[in-house]
Amino acid sequence: MLFPLTNSMRRAVLRWLSLLRVCGVPRAQVLLTHHPRYADLTPMQYAEALAWLRRVGMVTGNTASEAALSAVPLVKRSEGDEEERRKVGEAGERALLRLLGGHRLPHVRHVAAESDAYGYDIEAAWSHARPFHLEVKSTTDPTRLVVHLTRHECDVMMADRDWCLAAVLVGVEGEALSVVTVDTRWLMSAVPADRAKEGRWESARLLVPVSAMSPGLSIGARALLRREQLPNRPVWGFAGSTALLDA
């Protein structure tokens, strides 16, 4: 039973069981003690968690028991999940396009409708001289902001000073309930690093902290949406975050 464990020990136990679905103890131990994803706990905590699993009979030899593994849900990505994510993404892009149009920007172009090669979804500007290149990430979850960044999007971000990531909270009617800009410097620090020339990451899932969000749309001193034009509503951890009503 897991209830006597501390929170950190419980996390370590669940990570062991999750990894033991796909590999043995030696491989799981290497991942837990060397991979940056698991660095919030110490090697000693992982060792104590493994010892506890052995004591209660949930791990024998180099494998976990079937009963132990049944306590950890196996998450599989379905075609339905991918389709739902695609629909939310498209809804966010449409909502942001309507919002930009409502602010009467003279230059708005939905480049994602033309090609995926740009590395962003919308080009918008008050003048042709300096456009914003908006990569739009959309969600229906108001409690946290999770974005999925592709390698191509990341490469464009690194090279394009006018690129920025706009996160849109999509309402039930497809409207934009909130829009924030995710700090590019934070994104650059959060994406994975290739550790060998034989392998490279292609997609990253990032949980964005409140400290990396700015209400509205802006790059430095330049802004497309003025913060003061937008009412406040708690979302994504903000005590009073920008929310867009009647977008």
Rank of each mutant, 00 (worst) to 15 (best):
M1C: 01
M1A: 12
N7S: 10
S8D: 13
M9F: 03
R10T: 13
W16Y: 06
L17P: 08
R21I: 07
G24R: 13
V30L: 10
H34M: 07
P36T: 07
R37G: 02
L41S: 06
A47S: 12
A64N: 03
S65E: 06
A67K: 10
A67T: 12
S70K: 13
A71D: 05
L74Q: 11
K76R: 14
R77N: 07
S78P: 08
E83I: 07
R85T: 04
R86E: 11
V88C: 05
E93Q: 15
E93I: 13
L99V: 10
H103L: 12
L105E: 02
R109N: 05
H110M: 03
V111W: 09
G119M: 09
Y120T: 07
S127E: 08
H128M: 10
P131K: 03
F132G: 00
V136A: 06
S138Y: 11
T140W: 00
T143L: 11
H148F: 14
C154R: 10
R161D: 13
D162F: 09
C164D: 00
E173H: 12
E173V: 01
T181V: 07
T184L: 06
A190G: 01
V191I: 15
P192W: 09
A196Y: 07
E198D: 11
W201Y: 03
W201P: 03
V208N: 02
V208S: 01
P209Q: 06
V210Q: 12
S211W: 05
S211P: 00
S211A: 15
G216K: 09
R222E: 11
L224I: 08
Q229A: 14
P231T: 02
N232S: 14
R233S: 13
T242S: 12
A243P: 01
